[in-house]
Amino acid sequence: MGKSSQERPLSPCINLCRMDDDDRYCLGCFRTLDEIATWSDLDIEEKELVWQALDERRAKRA
């Protein structure tokens, strides 16, 4: 399972910004363009939901 919200960095961005071949998500942070664009407007609970989705995307990619 992934890290808890208290252990997570403020942003999933790792400064490796490149979309996958289908433009679904960033290969660095695994966020969609919508998630990247709205990140700063999300509250803690919404960010945690995105983090959970990122964990799932990362696991599928591995």
Score class of each variant (00 low, 15 high):
T32C: 00
G2T: 10
Q6I: 10
L42A: 11
D23M: 13
Y25F: 14
E35C: 05
K47G: 04
A59K: 03
R18P: 00
K60N: 12
I14Y: 02
I14K: 11
T32R: 11
S5V: 15
R18W: 06
D22Y: 06
L54S: 08
Q6N: 14
D23G: 12
A37Q: 12
R61S: 13
R18C: 07
W51H: 00
I14A: 08
I44Y: 13
A53K: 14
E46L: 06
P9G: 02
C17A: 06
A53G: 14
L33N: 08
D21Q: 10
R58A: 10
L10E: 14
S11Y: 01
R24H: 12
C13G: 03
S4N: 04
S40L: 00
D41Y: 04
T32E: 05
I14T: 08
T32S: 11
P12H: 08
L54A: 03
I44N: 08
P12E: 12
K60G: 10
E35I: 01
E48N: 03
A59M: 05
C17T: 10
R58F: 05
F30W: 08
C29L: 04
R8P: 09
C13V: 02
E7V: 01
T32H: 09
Q52N: 14
P12D: 10
I14C: 15
W51K: 07
I44K: 10
M19Y: 04
M1D: 15
I44E: 15
C13N: 01
C13D: 14
D41P: 00
L42V: 13
I14G: 00
A37Y: 01
C13S: 07
G2Y: 03
D21R: 10
V50Y: 04
S40H: 03
L10M: 09
G2L: 15
D23C: 06
L16C: 11
P9V: 01
K47N: 03
D34V: 01
Q6G: 06
W51E: 09
M1F: 02
L16R: 07
S11Q: 03
Q52M: 10
L54W: 05
K60A: 12
K60D: 07
S40C: 07
S5W: 04
W39T: 02
M1R: 01
G28K: 03
R24N: 10
I14M: 09
P9I: 02
S40M: 07
A37C: 11
D20E: 06
S5N: 13
A37V: 07
C17M: 09
R58N: 13
M19V: 07
S4K: 03
D55H: 14
M1L: 15
I36R: 06
C17S: 12
C29P: 08
L54P: 06
I14E: 07
M19T: 13
D21Y: 02
Y25Q: 09
D43P: 02
L10V: 07
I36Q: 10
L54V: 15
F30R: 05
V50T: 11
E45S: 05
L42K: 09
